[in-house]
Write a protein that binds this DNA or RNA. Structure first.
Length: 521
RNA sequence: GACCCCAUCGUCUAGUUGGCCUAGGACACUGGCCUUUCACGCCGGCGACACGGGUUCGAAUCCCGUUGGGGUCGCCA
């Protein structure tokens, strides 16, 4: 029986390319999680889903995956919607647009998940697990120590007596629901772009489907929603391949036909690892602030892993949709090369903007009332003529400052301390959802005292990092206006200018940082 | 470490039914032209089929192995 998992989805690879008229129209989706700044990787996956859907005359849906209550915020959700809109990646159905398959926000679908969990409970595909965090981490530790090839949940609660389960549930004991994964046989995952992938069930974890807060995890909500929203093709990042068996198992358990899967290569840092904000700016808003045109960014993302049949470098989103062919996706992970993005952006500026449009773009980008208004109070009392303004605010209108080690030579602080301040400040600013000047002040003001350093000295490297000058507009307001994306990148660039911080040094700094006894996160 | 994915210039890629590939284009780098400067633009240069076995008359293209890179192994997605 364990071997009888016939999980062959649809009719194979041709289903996507030659979908007969009788089958439902193509429906794809992007399902971002509002737990951070809008990521270029989200835009990249969204673009391919959009092009694929449009190419087949189908719909593209936006769904918010906010089941992680502790990290999801409405601000991030708005930022993601705004950024995708800015890029022109428009969706047909979504939390803001509505549609007849809603709601499109997972936190508003709790009842749906509960009902579906009940179905699986009755069919025995899920089981309650009462294990504590402590026990789980011990199991994990033991597995690591034993160099066990299989890691993950050991199936402890699977062997509980029915009567015991009933009484513990009745007593209201905290528990989660796990997926009952077979321990034998293999699962075959079909992918539009590669040969069938065989994965042993024994290597698949008994995934938690329903958390103790009653909310589903990604794996569960995702399958239920994709089915209910009639998603026909799932184009997602390669990182999901290893959890595809769980998803397939869920479709099987519900008796549903799974969508066609297509795992796209992951965007990479210059060193080849998965694109991450530690090593590369990843926020869409950063690129917007850096003066990248939305059409150029979309064009560039379209060049990642895909090429026009005619080999064109520059093309619009419409042209991409018209010429899109999923089979032209190449599987090697593309490096997000900012230098090439710049060139492409320049090409769009030179070739597609006339003088008037260029001026308009400058105005919508930064030379406008809304952008200038919060900046004026910072320089108002310091200027004698209007002509004094621009030199004082260039850091709000230019790219990142050009810094070298010499930039940090100052009588009030040594370059080594500069680096320390920059790294520590970066850590203090991590994970801040509220990026107002007040919140920033609260976070940063204690740092100088903690480091037994004068505020004046501490500000020098920060000013340098943010503006390229050791004297600049007030710190917290400057950070607030620059925003988290630009600010973080500039702090990192400044550390790099100081020779960067290697693993060893970071470890040492971390130790010193922890010793501050601060309210670090 | 286990499992899985991937593999053409430093980077993005063309090449997809094996011969038209002495491997094409673009970014970056570089030489020159244009030009009052710089940039743009134009012309040129540098530069890759990871390695080893097969299959074949013939392989970047197919198969196997090795190596390398990446991903996953959370009550995150």
């Amino acid at each position: 029986m364990a071997n009888s998992w016939d999980l062959t989805p649809t009719s194979g690879a041709f289903a996507a390319t030659v979908r007969p008229m009788s089958t439902p129209a193509v429906r794809t989706r992007i399902a971002p999680s509002p737990t951070g700044d809008p990521h270029v990787g989200t835009a990249y996956i969204a673009l391919f889903n959009l092009c694929f859907a449009r190419q087949h005359g189908g719909q593209f849906i936006l769904r918010i995956e906010d089941t992680d209550q502790s990290r999801s915020t409405p601000e991030y959700e708005k930022a993601i919607l705004d950024s995708l809109s800015w890029l022109g990646l428009d969706w047909d159905e979504g939390p803001d647009k509505g549609g007849d398959k809603g709601p499109y926000r997972q936190s508003e679908r709790k009842d749906i998940y509960r009902e579906h969990a009940e179905i699986l409970r009755k069919s025995g595909h899920v089981f309650p697990c009462f294990c504590s965090d402590e026990r789980l981490s011990e199991v994990r530790k033991a597995q690591t120590a034993a160099k066990s090839s299989t890691k993950g949940y050991d199936g402890h609660c699977l062997s509980l007596e029915a009567s015991e389960i009933e009484s513990r549930l009745a007593a209201g004991e905290s528990h989660v629901w796990r997926l009952n994964v077979p321990r034998e046989g293999t699962c075959e995952v079909l992918d539009l772009l590669r040969d069938p992938i065989s994965i042993e069930w024994s290597t698949v974890d008994m995934q938690i489907l329903l958390k103790s807060d009653g909310l589903p995890t990604y794996h569960f909500a995702n399958v239920v929603d994709d089915h209910l929203m009639e998603i026909t093709h799932v184009l997602r990042g390669e990182e999901w391949i290893s959890s595809a068996p769980k998803h397939l198992l869920l479709y099987k358990a519900f008796g549903w036909e799974p969508p066609v899967f297509c795992h796209l290569p992951l965007l990479r840092n210059p060193d080849g690892s998965k694109l991450s904000k530690r090593k590369n700016p990843t926020s869409i808003r950063y690129y917007e602030r850096a003066g990248i045109l939305p059409e150029a960014l979309v064009n560039f993302l379209g060049r990642m892993g895909w090429s026009m049949p005619g080999g064109e470098e520059k093309f619009s989103c419409e042209e991409m949709q018209k010429n899109f062919d999923i089979m032209r996706v190449s599987l090697g992970g593309p490096v997000f090369d900012v230098a090439k993005l710049r060139w492409l952006n320049g090409k769009w500026i030179r070739e597609d903007l006339n003088t008037e449009q260029f001026a308009e773009r400058m105005m919508t980008w930064a030379v406008n009332r809304d952008y200038l208004l919060p900046i004026i109070p910072l320089i108002h009392q310091r200027v004698d003529t209007l002509a004094d303004v621009v030199p004082m605010i260039t850091h709000f209108l230019s790219g990142n400052p050009d810094l070298s080690e010499e930039s940090f030579v100052h009588k009030k602080i040594t370059p080594e301390d500069c680096k320390k301040v920059l790294v520590f400040a970066g850590w203090r600013l991590e994970g801040m959802a509220d990026w107002s000047s007040e919140a920033l002040k609260e976070r940063l003001s204690g740092l100088a005292t903690d480091m037994e350093m004068k505020q004046g000295a501490m500000n020098i490297p920060l000013f340098l990092a943010l503006s390229g000058k050791s004297v600049s507009t007030p710190l917290y307001e400057t950070l607030a206006i620059l925003g988290p994306d630009v600010s973080r990148v500039r702090l990192r660039l400044a550390v790099d200018a100081l020779g960067g911080a290697g693993k060893k040094q970071l470890k040492k700094l971390q130790k010193a940082y922890d010793a501050l006894g601060s309210k670090a996160e």
